[in-house]
Design a protein around this nucleic acid. Structure first.
Lengths: 221, 221
DNA sequence: TTCTTGTCACCTAGGTGTTAATAT
DNA sequence: ATATTAACACCTAGGTGACAAGAA
């Protein structure tokens, strides 16, 4: 009834141990959580939403010399739990099923005082994204039907560790290779690395050799 | 029940004779058609939409030496009439009234074969935008109530001539001064021209002196 | 030490009028 | 002549990881 999009990319990250950046202003997830939804009633209204549950009650630490995560103690105090409602909500089943549902407006933050409605997560803790489909039911006995009107989907391969800076260098490299917005950090000499995750080729003026020296000024000739 | 936003800007354009660019790919309107809506039922559903009616049955021509429009004959064959439905439709009255309704996704084209759903207009003809509010009525006798469920608003100051290139140079200048996306064409030596139409000041790195010479190369120092 | 923050160059994505070339 | 098209420099708006500095 719900299928995770870009599963192979999620699997690739999951095999390395997915990390998601959290910032004060809020950072999008990459990969973006996207699903295809099936089996809804075309003319009934639904609210689609996401939340994040702690995977365990632990705090983690990354050891660079062994390139591995280890437990660093008990979890910090839990943050105020928040839910992200998909901005198209409420909408009819027909709307949700006619295209991929993308949670690309969802942002993660570590700011406990956030007032932008972003999802608040503790850094160095592990989380499991969850996806919920709620049927809008205005009938008098909607309370009794609350359970059947509420469906939750969990994709194990989307769990991740929240971080303020990437820990595993291989995660950094996979993000750079697969996120179009990080194209500026790709090292490409030839066209072999130029194919993005969707199989698209770059525009002709792309892939000039990267230099991270910051010019102090520039002059027109 | 509907109030035009940015009326003073529309008036400024209307006094000069508003022109709107039409292109094959589709061009947004500037000013953008935006309204505040009042008096809807908060919990009923409405569809909001726009269409464009010919102001007259004439074709126009612009005389640069006299800076004026004149009739150039009868109108060309009318294009297939199209309606632009606001992408939030259908939505409850509460949604429409809680913020300004902006038709910034609406695009104008002169391509009669357009398959992007854009509004098709004949260049060098005059048009009157119209705004419609339609109550979604599922009752059995909705046919009888069709008229009361359908309200149309016309703001005379939003009429314009469709063009493929600006004719009146004063229109061009007003577009450049008031549209943020045309900031690159502003001639500014001091901060006096730097206040945009909303009264906002520019960001610190703006308003470098404009040069339309295209550098053949540039060098980092 | 370990983790977090703020700034930055470098991208994606797309909205401007200009200009030269092309229709009509 | 007049009208249209396509490429382009220059913007707005905002998403990346790198890096240096700061905080715990």
């Amino acid at each position: 009834e719900a299928k995770l999009e870009m599963k192979s990319l999620w699997d690739e990250f999951d095999d390395l141990g997915t990390e998601m950046i959290v910032t004060k202003a809020g950072r999008r997830m990459f990969p973006t959580f996207q699903v295809k939804v099936f089996g809804l009633d075309v003319n009934s209204e639904y609210i689609l939403m996401m939340d994040f549950t702690p995977v365990d009650d632990k705090r983690y630490r990354y050891a660079f010399h062994t390139s591995s995560w280890s437990v660093a103690g008990k979890a910090d105090a839990a943050m105020p739990p928040r839910i992200h409602v998909h901005p198209d909500s409420p909408a009819k089943g027909g709307h949700w099923m006619k295209q991929i549902v993308s949670f690309d407006k969802l942002k993660l933050t570590n700011n406990l005082l956030d007032d932008n409605g972003h999802i608040i997560l503790n850094s160095m803790h592990r989380f499991q994204p969850r996806f919920h489909v709620v049927l809008v039911d205005n009938s008098h006995d909607s309370v009794q039907r609350a359970e059947e009107n509420f469906k939750t989907f969990v994709f194990d391969e989307t769990k991740f560790t929240a971080v303020t800076a990437y820990q595993n260098h291989r995660i950094t490299q996979l993000k750079i290779q697969s996120n179009p917005f990080a194209k500026g950090f790709r090292d490409c000499d030839t066209e072999e690395c130029a194919i993005d995750v969707l199989g698209n080729y770059p525009s002709p003026n792309a892939s000039r050799s990267r230099s991270h020296h910051r010019p102090s000024s520039l002059q027109l000739m």
